[in-house]
Nucleic acid binder design. Structure first.
Lengths: 117, 117
DNA sequence: ACCATAGTTCGAGAATCCCGAAGTGTCGAA
DNA sequence: TTCGACACTTCGGGATTCTCGAACTATGGT
């Protein structure tokens, strides 16, 4: 099983209730696109691990995570004082087959949104 | 050639300057997603032909067309009193190979955004 | 108990979106 | 050649959303 003992999952929409437009909206921001890319590359990371090097304040990031969670892109679970981010790869692959792979590989090929100096 | 005699194309970004996030942002709205779907299904249609049955005011539609044009999804050309919409399928296919086909087929499978009664 | 960590929530200003009203350019008829 | 209709675009103001600093919450470590 995925969640460690004591990890409290945050509420998220069910797979069958996901719709396409919110998913694309969530991906249609450079910061979120990069965060999603990293979340897929490093599943189970914490918020701050995934946001490392991005020059974006934490309160803004918190809103980005919410948008991605409400769109159904990611799961979040409270783990101690961290939140662990898990890509909802399985749900998305079933609900929207073929959607994410090209987006993620194209995102990986683009210049990253920004890095700390 | 595509443009009829006397058709004045509107300015649009060059293929190589297109980036992923604005494209996904343009697709991340239910009305625009439906318009893009129709534009691909019926290339060369006018604005009002593509928007037929959508309960959205024309000034709002005009903004949607601008967002899609600036993202690089569509070309527009003045043809008499109409604007003809052409999907930039070739440019997008070269710049973002594999991106649009799954999105468009998934959009076609979803319940449409709305229809006039 | 106390403090540090990891994030969330709140609130206000900025940016964006929505849509009615007015404007622009073109066509067809008189 | 003027007039009106048509197919949009632009303008402007209200509504929504986004951004981010400040304050708050919850947990872990000492």
């Amino acid at each position: 099983m995925w969640y460690r003992q004591g990890m409290r999952p945050l509420p998220e929409p069910a797979r069958e209730s996901l719709t396409l437009a919110p998913v694309l909206h969530a991906l249609g921001d450079p910061v979120r696109l990069e965060l999603v890319r990293r979340a897929w590359a490093s599943p189970g990371s914490t918020c701050s691990e995934l946001a490392d090097g991005l020059d974006v304040p934490m309160s803004t990031l918190s809103n980005h995570w919410r948008i991605m969670r409400e769109a159904g892109l990611i799961s979040m679970a409270v783990d101690g004082r961290n939140r662990r981010i898990r890509p909802r790869a399985d749900d998305l692959g079933r609900r929207f087959p073929g959607l994410l792979d090209p987006i993620l590989s194209l995102a990986a090929a683009e210049p990253p949104v920004s890095a700390a100096s």
